[in-house]
Design a protein around this nucleic acid. Structure first.
Lengths: 220, 220
DNA sequence: GTCTATAGCAAGATAGAC
DNA sequence: GTCTATCTTGCTATAGAC
């Protein structure tokens, strides 16, 4: 690891520590620089803004979650069970950062921000997560409309974003409410996915898939 | 209108203009004050922060939307039609502010912020909007499980928040994509609501209602 | 209670020297 | 790559006019 890399990661690590200790807003660039033993200008040499420091945090949490989730659902074939494992695993992984994590995800809500989960910059992280969801579906015993099956990983990623949004607003102890949300919506989703082939629901399923397809088009 | 009211609305109007022209971030309190011909101190006398200026914007847009929406769905009894009217009416009302509106809704995403649609400060505006949704349901010909009917206004408000979230990220011309989303999800929602009494879906409906009920509890 | 003027702080960000 | 000095801007404080 060159000097450059070293300074960079020193700054990130210091920032993460101060963020967890004092919160995002109350942690100043000055204090990060001072604590890391570098100048403010140097910190800005590596990170073009305070927000940019957050990307490092995202990548790490995503990485930890994916490894833990794969381990946790290994051997399990029930779709609902796999779904629940992955989501609860995320809640567990993110738990220590909940206090200041909210600040982070607020910044991520800005569509212009490279930190947005929908942004081009987030594409690698997003794709990696969707790949995880594809594994959830493919190695499960789920019986579902083949076309829906194809779209399911992306839809589950979207649902995960919804869970994150709920989690951000969750003020209960140990984010119990988010856990409840997960535990009780997961069976509903699994049930609905299974029912999607039913005669009465078939047209709704098709129209939903067609809509998603049309919305995904880059033009229009 | 007294002098106080006049100054207040002058400041809001100026701020709105500058926000639309230059964006939220690039508009400084100094420039707002200068352009409105008041001192910075005076601006802060009326609005405790730059964010606070946004609340005025919210209130105005909500007011305009509600009046226009009531007019637009008057006489219409079809549930899906009424739903579509109200949502498309919102998209129309918000259209001129889309460019900088995103900046606003980002601030609103902060759960700690009084600007959050879930905050206590937003309760009056939220209740007014939910009341509008209650009218949508009640004066329609919708046949639906009575318990679901009771919760429907709040659920529709939540759906509206989802539409807003989509709208914020919508970069298409005249927010065509959001309009498409509305036009095509509305029939699905109406259909699903109607089907909620079906034997296969009944348990799902009940469980969903029970979950919402439990999540709404303040404790836990 | 409404408003001006001005000085100043804190903190994010930048310029330019080395 | 790194630093010091400086700028910008949200926000506060004060003192006083009407």
């Amino acid at each position: 690891m060159g000097k450059s890399e070293e300074t960079r990661s020193l700054i990130v690590a210091t920032a993460m520590r101060l963020f967890t200790e004092n919160g995002y807003d109350r942690t100043t660039m000055r204090s990060i620089a001072a604590e890391a033993g570098v100048s403010v200008g140097n910190a800005y040499y590596y990170f073009s803004s305070k927000e940019q420091l957050i990307q490092g945090f995202y990548d790490e949490i995503a990485w930890v979650h994916q490894t833990a989730a794969r381990e946790r659902m290994a051997g399990e074939t029930g779709f609902a069970e796999r779904l629940e494992h992955v989501l609860l695993c995320w809640v567990d992984t993110a738990e220590p950062y909940h206090r200041f994590g909210t600040q982070f995800f607020v910044n991520a809500a800005d569509p212009e921000s490279p930190l947005s989960p929908f942004s081009a910059d987030s594409a690698p992280a997003r794709d990696a997560t969707i790949a995880l969801w594809r594994e959830v579906v493919e190695n499960s015993d789920l019986k579902v409309d083949p076309e829906l099956r194809e779209e399911l990983p992306e839809l589950l990623w979207l649902f995960q974003m919804g869970v994150v949004l709920f989690w951000v607003h969750d003020r209960s102890q140990q984010t119990k409410r988010t856990r409840m949300l997960v535990r009780r919506t997961v069976p509903l989703i699994a049930r609905l996915a299974g029912l999607s082939r039913l005669r009465v629901l078939r047209p709704i399923t098709r129209e939903l898939l067609s809509l998603i397809h049309d919305l995904a088009k880059k033009d229009s």
